[in-house]
């Protein structure tokens, strides 16, 4: 008889069979986490931010007709929620419990150095004007100028100006941090 009672799962169904919100989640989740990570410098915290953002977007844009606006909204919301991030330890513990794995892969000494430098970046970002910090993490998470403009609700031509000022401000903040 072998082990005939064991049913192997079939192939994943086509995307068309997914619910609209699940499809939206799966398409936008990587970008949202990358943006949040740009601020938090911590994968667990970034995943927590993404959870908050997707809970909120479902309430803000319940209809499928709002997909374009929702896409722009989750990206900028990821930046802002991450900048507000002060919570997350509770769900971090839950995630590690569920996944059964420690996600950090570096050695103890590297982790200490890494944590210090990541904390410096977080502090520098937190001292920047909010829109400057947001445009920085959106662009450096891999969004194009057009996507940054859509998320920030500005014209594409303004993105260069915003980025220039934000990067200059970031350099100054990092220089100040290294002096102290």
């Amino acid at each position: 008889m072998g082990i005939s009672f064991v049913t192997r799962p079939g192939p994943r169904p086509p995307q068309a069979s997914l619910s609209g919100f699940e499809r939206f989640f799966r398409e936008q989740y990587p970008a949202v986490v990358r943006i949040a990570f740009g601020v938090t410098r911590d994968a667990h915290m970034a995943q927590d931010v993404a959870q908050d953002v997707f809970v909120s977007v479902l309430r803000r844009f319940p209809g499928p007709a709002d997909t374009d606006r929702a896409r722009a909204w989750v990206r900028v919301a990821a930046a802002h929620v991450a900048l507000n991030m002060i919570r997350g330890e509770r769900r971090r513990e839950r995630r590690e419990q569920l996944s059964g794995t420690e996600m950090a892969g570096t050695g103890p000494e590297e982790m200490v150095v890494d944590r210090e430098s990541q904390a410096e970046v977080r502090q520098a970002l937190s001292r920047l004007p909010r829109r400057a910090a947001a445009v920085l993490v959106l662009r450096h998470s891999g969004l194009s100028y057009a996507e940054v403009a859509e998320a920030m609700n500005v014209k594409v031509g303004q993105v260069g100006t915003m980025l220039r000022r934000a990067e200059s401000a970031l350099r100054k903040e990092l220089q100040n941090a290294s002096r102290t």
């Binding site: 990358r34 410098r41 996600m103 970046v121 990067e167």
Partner: peptide, 15 residues
Amino acid sequence: LAARTLGTPCDIGDV
């Protein structure tokens, strides 16, 4: 500098 600082690869986790 911004790319070095902010462009760290991110583990997006298990979707």
